[in-house]
Amino acid sequence: MHINMIHINNKIVITGCGGMLGEAVYREFKNISDVYASDIDCNESWLDFLDVSLEQDVIDYLEKIKPDYIIHLAAKTDMEYCERNSDDAYFTNRDGVSYIVKYANKYSIPLVYISTAGIFDGKKDFYTENDRPNPLSIYGKSKYEGEIEAGKAYKSIIIRAGWMMGGGPKKDKKFVNKIIKQINTGAQKLNVVNDKFGTPCYTYNLAKSIYFLLNNEHYGIYHGTCDGDCSRYNFAIALVEYLGLKDKIYIEEVSSDFFKDSYFAPRPYSEKLINIKLKKIAPHLTKDWKIYLKEYTKRFNWIL
């Protein structure tokens, strides 16, 4: 009989749990263990305040709780903010990880760190777990340095995520909600770039992968995206179709230059990830991004 490693009495600290991935991870773990969730934005009653860039605060918080597992989601993820505030990006995305690792190694507990496809330079068509990172942006660089820090933990699971979708109208800060917000304000024509490629990543699915890897003690580096890949344009076309607005919304293909003033951080041409390692040990865990996108659009009331 399969024995669950993660027990109901285990304490799990989840940092950065107020964000879009945090919502899914909290939901995944809250009924199976004792969850201590924190964020710098306490937007839920179940969140504690914790700024992971402050070493003493991190130590005090962890020493008080004495967790059995840590899922470290906290990061500065706004790429433009990171370009403008590089110190701050490194304080959180690199140094924050090192404080957590120090604690994890002191008690030899497992740590999950979420990384990104943005650590690659995008020159290859797609990236496997073994490809060499070469980040272009401050965000990518700081997350890659965070990955190196996380790798110093005795028991670390590093999962690289792709284009994130999840959280619904309230928490989704990424592409899906950006598009829907435009539609909700009356836009009938949307400009979407056709020269950036990537692999979508469904937060609820990634949360399940985190549980699987942690519960089965599969330490190492993984890619946690859905199957398949697309351009932003392909993704928007599918999104509008699933929202039932194919005939009402026109999507204009534009190049990235169109948005270069507001999205000035360098973004790789390809952020396509394939998750060979996860697929090998748990083929049931991931499906094609279109299946999840369809589910995601139906999951929430987007008021269109």
């Binding site: 399969h2 995944e28 009924n31 609820y204 589910e295 999951r299 009331n301």
Partner: peptide
């Protein structure tokens, strides 16, 4: 389920898996 986990555990998983409103 590979093994019989019982009613409570099964119900719990049902709530966990259900995603709609």
């Amino acid at each position: 389920h590979k093994n019989n986990l019982g009613y409570g555990a099964t119900l719990k998983q049902g709530f966990q898996e259900s995603c709609y409103e």
